[in-house]
């Protein structure tokens, strides 16, 4: 049976983790590679490295950093942040990333999804969507870190993205992000009923039960979180045993 994936997300700026992690007895880990390795050893199923300088200041993702991750970490990882062109895809994949996530650039130029999917395969094209609730069962796609509305309907945009060749969807709920009140289950379930590619829930995790709900209620394939892991509020090991106890298929 295919297992649900637990995916820690690491924000990286200039090759450093933006928010380091304080583990018991260990000083803050600033190296995203070391932190990724640590998460991998604790049972993370996949990692996401998000270059936050890339989108804001138009910087290229540091190739060396991605190369180092590929050498040091033996689970799949996705790289995002500032990917704008086929060349960006090519560069990051050549450095060893397994997947590339695109967000604003795909909204601006949807053909990029198609081109990348045809050239590199759907499995490495991840469409990341920032969603904001704008009405009863209605969500709008936002870009630029959630600061700019696009007028696009989330469900329609995701369906289009999958048609164009996106192999996986990351659903970031702007309303839930950082609130620690759980994932937006209504949104996730609505997307689940529309597309059959893997769906990754993002934004809102506060406690163990939130992960359970995303997996059990909305039937997502993967659950992404950042701060609850980074601040040591939830350990991946503890989370996975909890989910297994509640009947969610996990790799232990």
């Amino acid at each position: 049976m295919l297992k649900k994936r637990i995916i820690p997300c690491l924000d990286v700026r200039n090759g450093q983790v933006v928010k380091g992690v304080q583990f018991e007895g260990i000083k803050e880990i600033a190296s995203p590679v070391a932190l990724g390795k640590k998460y991998s050893e604790e049972g993370a199923d996949e990692l996401v490295f998000y270059d936050i300088t890339a989108s804001k200041e138009d910087r290229q993702i540091f190739e060396d950093f991605v190369k180092e991750v590929a050498r040091e970490i033996n689970i799949p990882f996705c790289v995002g942040g500032g990917i704008k062109s086929i060349e960006d895809f090519s560069t990051v994949l050549k450095c060893g990333a397994d997947k590339v996530s695109i967000n604003s650039a795909a909204v601006k130029n949807p053909e990029l999804i198609k081109e990348a999917s045809e050239k590199f395969g759907a499995q490495c094209v991840v469409l990341s969507v920032d969603c904001k609730k704008v009405g009863e069962s209605k969500w709008e796609v936002f870009v630029r870190g959630g600061s700019e509305g696009t007028g696009l309907d989330v469900l329609e945009w995701i369906e289009k993205g999958v048609e164009l060749g996106a192999g996986e969807i990351v659903v970031n709920s702007i309303d839930s992000d950082g609130m620690k009140h759980g994932y937006d289950l209504e949104l996730l379930s609505a997307i689940r009923s529309r597309v059959s590619v893997p769906i990754i829930a993002s934004g809102g995790a506060g406690c163990l039960e939130d992960f359970y709900d995303a997996a059990a209620v909305s039937d997502v394939d993967g659950i992404l979180a950042a701060s609850v892991f980074h601040y040591g509020e939830i350990s991946i090991k503890e989370l996975k045993s909890y989910l297994v106890e509640r009947g969610i298929p996990m790799r232990l």
Binding site: M1, K3, A122, G167, S196, P198, G222
Partner: peptide, 11 residues
């Protein structure tokens, strides 16, 4: 099957 690709960890 419906949900493809088969992507992730399996026993």
């Amino acid at each position: 099957g419906e949900r493809l690709p088969h992507m992730g960890w399996n026993e």
